[in-house]
Design a protein around this nucleic acid. Structure first.
Length: 719
DNA sequence: AAAAAAC
């Protein structure tokens, strides 16, 4: 047994440090009990191995070892006080006497020994572990992390009652109820004095312009924009006729059943709409009734779109008439067509090849989507559309301006870039649209938006649209709009009625598990997180437990952004973990659940994130996870978003969660990075697959394709 | 206070 002795180890090592007495298999020192520990376990003092003994050969290679200072507990010549002739002290326990057999001796030092007689009721724990305070019946004995140490006035010790409103005072509304009070959240309310408001129910055929302005549109400072053929006067009798025949769907939005929406992302090719095969604008087509040109109405009809959404019915007539419009409609309610159709109609009359329409949007993905929606419609009236956004090749965009392009759909940064390069000329722009206008009026965006608005002629028409159009746009409205008309079509409801809302109060250590359970559900799911890194982290954690998830955020290359979004649309990656880059406007079919892993920053963000589901009359659920410290904040956000939902405490593997979301316990093996990469790889064999971008073919093929061009043509048309 | 938006 070579390991029993240090002599088997290199002499140098043995000399360098105190030799262990025995070793484990790996050569490390074996733990030796101290005398005290041995005594605790009922053993006597060591009989061997306690220290080197020259007579046993132990430590024989360490000369001078025996010169180490003597210690009282060494079992050799007894110390003076321990010798037989030492004066006996009455309190001395002779268990320590060295003349006793070693196994009976207690070699621990005095302060280490507890000589008191044993008592069953004594608390032998060290002081710091004991609680010596006198017992009090009302003391909270729970461990600190469980106790509520706040002073009494801060605690709420009253027994819980299901019907009490426990929210902090500033969150409660204690005012006596009044039947006529507007309870909608502030950003939804119209706080203007009564005489400034127009409370009459909206009618698509009413001329809302101030009376002095009805016959010609604006004052001398802004010549009428509808100079090309007097569209307004032509269309008006038509609209009246339609009204007389009862046309136009006036039902509230949630009662309408409409096939398809404006936001459908995958219109692949402009050429797909063949003018010769267009459905005719029949009597009763709601879009024709709004005064849109027949060729556009036909293009829509051939897509199965014949009934305008309320926001479209409300805004199109005014926009067609050339007025500045503020439009607000619920998420997924058709705003893109709300501004797109009148813009294209008005530009249809007039010259070609100069940029006469600009649509500004806050994200590149939304820009693609809007361009994809407008491009085929534009081509039916002979207008070309170009997508101008960062992260994509300059070539096609520059070329488009070279040839002359009629409508620009852009994110602000790249458009300004092209303006500075002298490629984009906005001096002929007649119509400017701010999509997600309240966001574009944000502090971060405003300077860029200003630059664009300052570059277009001040006489042009401006259209501002958003699902949460609030007073935040006031500055823009004041500076850049002329006598705007506001259309708000959301029936006082913050979210659509087909949307279910849940707030899950989760424990920090279970959040990840619950997130994975929910993400593992059937169907497409969008997860929202606060930060880019958070998106990456959550996505990779999900893949680790076998849930195919991809991260989407602004820190990725545009190529990666496009690929993950495509994979999500195709369904190969059913879970998208996104920052707020995907919160606004992005449309993906059949997203059945939105999970807010991190709470949104504000009530507007809540509504936009939620709006990724339940689009165009579909159903969907919105789940918000809340940690203990977020409880109040989340309650406030949800309430301000106009959602009447209270948090429910849930835990991992919780029947409530399964029922509400269709969650399932993840049970598949981890997804390797390589496998994930394959899923979002560039669409090599993508012939026929659906992609976010289509080929834009405006007049003269204004733009060839997107970054990484050369993508195969073709593909089926979406339903 | 993060994200988005140009290179």
């Amino acid at each position: 047994m070579p390991n029993r002795s240090t002599s088997s180890r290199p002499a140098g090592a043995a000399a360098a440090k105190k030799a262990p007495k025995s070793h484990k298999a790996d050569g490390t020192a074996k733990k030796r009990w101290s005398a005290a520990e041995r005594a605790d376990r009922g053993h006597g003092p060591r009989r061997s191995g306690g220290r080197p003994r020259s007579e046993s050969g132990f430590g024989a290679d360490r000369p001078g070892r025996d010169e180490t200072p003597r210690r009282f507990d060494r079992d050799e010549a007894p110390r003076r006080s321990d010798r037989e002739d030492a004066p006996r002290r009455s309190d001395r326990d002779d268990r320590a006497r060295t003349d006793r057999p070693r196994f009976e001796r207690d070699d621990r030092r005095r302060f280490e020994r507890d000589d008191r007689p044993r008592r069953f009721d004594r608390d032998d724990r060290p002081r710091f572990e004991r609680d010596d305070r006198p017992r009090r019946f009302d003391r909270d004995e729970r461990p600190r992390f469980e106790r509520d140490d706040r002073p009494r006035f801060e605690r709420d010790d009253r027994p819980r009652r299901f019907d009490r409103d426990d929210r902090p005072r500033f969150e409660r509304d204690d005012r006596p109820r009044r039947f006529d009070r507007d309870e909608r959240p502030r950003f939804e309310r119209d706080d203007r004095p009564r005489f400034e408001r127009d409370d009459r129910p909206r009618r698509f055929d009413r001329d809302d312009r101030p009376s002095g302005d009805r016959e010609h549109r604006r004052g001398a400072s802004r010549p009428p924009v509808d100079q090309h053929g007097g569209r307004r006067h032509e269309s008006r009798p038509h609209r009246f006729a339609e009204r007389a025949s009862g046309a136009g769907d006036r039902r509230p939005e949630w009662q309408q059943v409409v096939e398809g929406t404006e936001d459908q992302m995958s219109w692949t090719e402009a050429a797909a709409v063949d003018v010769t095969e267009l459905a005719t604008a029949e009597e009763g087509n709601g879009f024709a009734a709004l005064g849109l040109p027949g060729v556009l109405v036909g293009a829509l009809a051939s897509q199965g779109i014949t009934t305008p959404f309320p926001i479209q019915a409300a805004t199109i007539p005014d926009a067609l008439a050339g007025r500045d419009v503020l439009g607000r409609g619920q998420t997924g309610s058709g705003k893109t067509l709300g501004f797109g159709l009148p813009m294209l109609s008005r530009l249809a009359d007039g010259p070609r090849g100069r940029t006469r329409g600009v649509v500004l949007v806050p994200t590149r993905e939304l820009a693609m989507q809007v361009a994809d929606v407008l491009s085929p419609l534009a081509s039916t009236v002979g207008l070309s559309v170009v997508l101008v956004a960062g992260g994509m090749a300059y070539g096609p965009q520059l070329k488009a301006f070279d040839r002359g392009v009629d409508v620009v759909v852009a994110t602000p940064g790249r458009l300004i870039d092209l303006m500075d390069q002298g490629a984009a000329d906005l001096s002929s722009v007649e119509i400017t649209v701010l999509d997600e206008a309240d966001h574009m009026a944000d502090l971060g965006f405003l300077p860029d938006v200003r630059r664009v608005l300052d570059s277009v002629p001040p006489t042009g028409q401006r259209l501002l649209f958003s699902a949460t159009l609030d007073r935040g746009v006031d500055t823009v409205v004041r500076e850049y709009l002329d006598d705007p008309v506001t259309h708000e079509v959301d029936s006082g409801q913050a979210t659509v009625s087909t949307m279910a809302h849940h707030v899950f109060q989760v424990k920090p250590y279970e959040k990840q598990t619950i997130t994975a359970e929910v993400a593992n559900r059937e169907g497409r799911t969008v997860l929202f997180v606060r930060t880019q890194r958070g998106a990456d982290r959550v996505a990779s954690q999900l893949r680790e437990v076998g849930v195919m998830a991809g991260a989407l955020h602004g820190g990725l290359t545009q190529g990666a952004r496009s690929r993950i979004l495509s994979a999500f649309k195709e369904g190969t990656v059913p879970v998208l973990v996104a920052t707020d880059v995907a919160a606004r406007g992005i449309h993906v079919d059949e997203v059945s659940l939105v999970l807010q892993v991190d709470p949104p920053m504000g009530p507007k963000d809540y509504l936009h994130r939620a709006g990724r589901t339940a689009r165009a009359g579909g159903e969907g659920a919105v789940v918000t996870l809340s940690l203990p410290h977020q409880r109040r904040e989340v309650a406030r956000l949800v309430k301000q978003a106009g959602v009447a939902t209270v948090a429910q405490d849930v835990s991992a593997d919780d029947e409530q969660v399964y029922r509400a979301t269709g969650a399932r316990k993840p049970s598949r093996p981890a997804i390797e990075d390589a496998e994930y990469e394959r899923m979002i790889a560039p669409p090599v064999k993508a012939r026929g697959s659906r992609r976010p971008g289509g080929q834009f073919r405006g007049r003269g093929r204004a733009q060839g394709g997107r970054q990484g061009g050369g993508r195969p043509r073709g593909g089926h048309r979406p339903v």
